[in-house]
């Protein structure tokens, strides 16, 4: 079943996330990070940073930090077991730190298919803001297999 292209332009339910040093510490441990700016609040403070620095891909984790991270695909009737992550990209404007509260405001910007619908692609673009200031653009392409 092809996804209805009427969903292009659909707004993703917005959400907000408060970034914690606790989660960043675990992320650093999982990814083999050794630079203390990414996990040690004291080291970050001594370097003049307001908190522990969120690494480049962490915006994706925060975007997923909601009860139903793929709510938009469920709305389209997609089977999440047939979902693959196709592409991910970020455009950076400002660094973010533990203690920041970020607002995620997303929209479905494209839906297309390849191989006569065997693979369908859902493109989501999210503006991430901190107190109204744009800090990152998050671009995701999810693939739904037939």
């Amino acid at each position: 079943m092809l996804i209805d292209k009427k969903h292009i332009g659909m707004k993703v339910p917005p959400h907000s996330v408060r970034l914690t040093a606790w989660q960043l510490k675990w992320f650093a441990k999982a990814t083999g990070e050794t630079n203390p700016l990414y996990f040690d609040e004291e080291a970050a403070r001594q370097a003049g940073l307001p908190g522990v620095l969120a690494p480049p891909t962490f915006f994706f984790c925060m975007d997923m930090d909601k009860e139903h991270p793929f709510d938009y695909l469920e709305t389209m009737g997609c089977d999440l077991m047939k979902m693959l992550h196709g592409e991910q990209s970020f455009t950076y404007h400002q660094p973010v730190y533990s203690g920041d509260t970020l607002d995620f405001d997303g929209e479905i910007t494209d839906i297309y298919d390849k191989r006569n619908g065997a693979l369908q692609f859902v493109v989501k673009d999210v503006k991430v803001r901190r107190q109204g200031e744009l800090v990152c653009d998050v671009h995701s392409v999810m693939v739904i297999r037939a």
């Binding site: 083999g32 990070e33 690494p55 480049p56 891909t57 592409e87 990209s89």
Partner: peptide, 24 residues
């Protein structure tokens, strides 16, 4: 992708990264 992020931030301060994307 997080590992590739480390590749970047071990080379330059993170504030130097303008954009970063991957295909899986």
């Amino acid at each position: 992708m997080a590992y590739l992020g480390r590749l970047l931030t071990q080379w330059v301060p993170q504030s130097a990264i303008r954009s970063f994307g991957v295909r899986f």
